[in-house]
């Protein structure tokens, strides 16, 4: 995972390298976190933002085991909301059985990355999910 020159993150808020993590744009006045660009903070209307790393470990606060999806998306998959030390994150629960006996509310999870495959130029796309901690 150290050679990231031929890798591309699936989304721009996923930081690859030796210590893969998500990053958020945080409002410098109230700390609200965003994963896309904002003109003003939706919470306090402040206009100063900084980029901060998001904790890679968290707790599942909501999930659904989804049986139907757009073509190309493997099903069933576990869609979830993870509370990463106060920052809410959307992601799939991966590397475990997608059933209600395995996944539970309040379970501890940690960030994990996986390959979406390489394109014709040899660049590998890297996605992320959360696996049981």
């Amino acid at each position: 995972m150290s050679d990231t020159s031929t890798q591309i993150p699936m989304v721009d808020y996923l930081v690859l390298g030796d210590d893969p993590h998500l990053q958020a744009t945080k409002c410098t006045s109230c700390g609200s976190a965003y994963f896309d660009r904002r003109n003003a903070c939706a919470s306090c209307f402040g206009t100063e933002f900084s980029t901060e790393p998001v904790a890679t470990e968290g707790i599942v606060t909501a999930f659904s085991i989804v049986s139907f999806a757009a073509p190309g998306v493997p099903t069933p998959f576990v869609a979830a909301v993870i509370d990463c030390d106060g920052t809410q994150v959307r992601g799939n629960i991966i590397n475990c059985e997608p059933d209600a006996d395995t996944v539970s509310l309040g379970m501890a999870v940690k960030l994990a990355t996986y390959s979406l495959g390489a394109d014709s130029a040899g660049t590998e796309a890297i996605g992320f999910g959360f696996e049981p901690a």
Binding site: P9, M10, Y13, A62, V66, A69, A70, V81, G127
Partner: peptide
Amino acid sequence: YGAVASTDGRIGTQTMPGVFAQVGMEYGH
């Protein structure tokens, strides 16, 4: 989000049944 592939189903879900399922599960949590 600078996404290289469709995020739906790969980064959680935005389909209605999945979203509202989580709304109920969140209440349970």
